[in-house]
Nucleic acid binder design. Sequence first.
DNA 1: CCGACTACCTGCCCGC
DNA 2: TGCGGGCAGGTAGTCG
Length: 298
Amino acid sequence: MPELPEVETVRRGLAPVMEGAIVKRLELRRANLRFPFPDDFQTAVEGKRITSVGRRAKYLLVDLADGNVIIMHLGMSGSFRTQEETTSDKTPGDFHHERNRLEAHDHVTFHLKTAKGSSARVIYNDPRRFGFMLMTPRNALDDHPMFENLGVEPVGNALSAQELASKLMGRTSPLKAALLDQRVIAGLGNIYVCEALWRAGLSPKRRSSTLVLKSGRPTERATLLTDHIKEVISDAIKAGGSSLKDHAQTDGTLGYFQHSFAVYDQEGEDCAKPQCNGTISRIVQSGRSTFYCGKCQK
DNA sequence: CCGACTACCTGCCCGC
DNA sequence: TGCGGGCAGGTAGTCG
């Protein structure tokens, strides 16, 4: 599930349940995900009030009232689902519904008393366990190893053609690899890089530095690419992200941006660009699949 | 510094 | 039907 649009979709699902809630109990069903949980993680979280659920790049940030922030990453296969006590549940804190049972790879459960006073659970599931949960003081977040080198967000005003040009200047790597580098733009992943390059008509194999003039100013191509990156991310967020195999949203409903893929996982299909009669190809770049049209992406 | 490659882990799909 | 290989939205660490 998880590039920026999917993580933002998850954030929007978690916020109404978690914001203002007290963590009554934090249930860890194993000692680690990709990394060990922080020392005394349970003690640090239980009894605390959650003030907000935020996002930076592909990271979810759960702020606690005591000034600490839980950093959560979904890796490749992480997902959250929520369970809320309903009026048909007779005993407070009791969950009778069939859908409320645990599933394979449910590793973490946040047992909450919500701001409304009801009981709820937030369950983290992650078959491959590439995700992780860490904690740091909020005022030290920018210095955390995972954050100190992060590039700009592709939503909002931070990303500009000039910013992109300054990051691509002097880079000899293919454009695809540069855009996947979280130090350049934070939050893009394999799907949205492929889609943005197609929309901009740029080859994933193009040398990164060809989008920068000698003066360090962006080329027209860089401006075009910047606009298309913002657009595809914004379109995907509006669609609730992309749901490939898994549920993308915390209430179990599916995002539908995958129906809008022009190139990702479309090998052999006709290019959708008007007037282009090319075919979508798949190649491998730095160990990962790239999908593109060799005819209209130059 | 940069860039390419590998490791981490489970599940699914395809071909034999 | 069963099995092996390849592939999957992620990042971090190593090596040249």
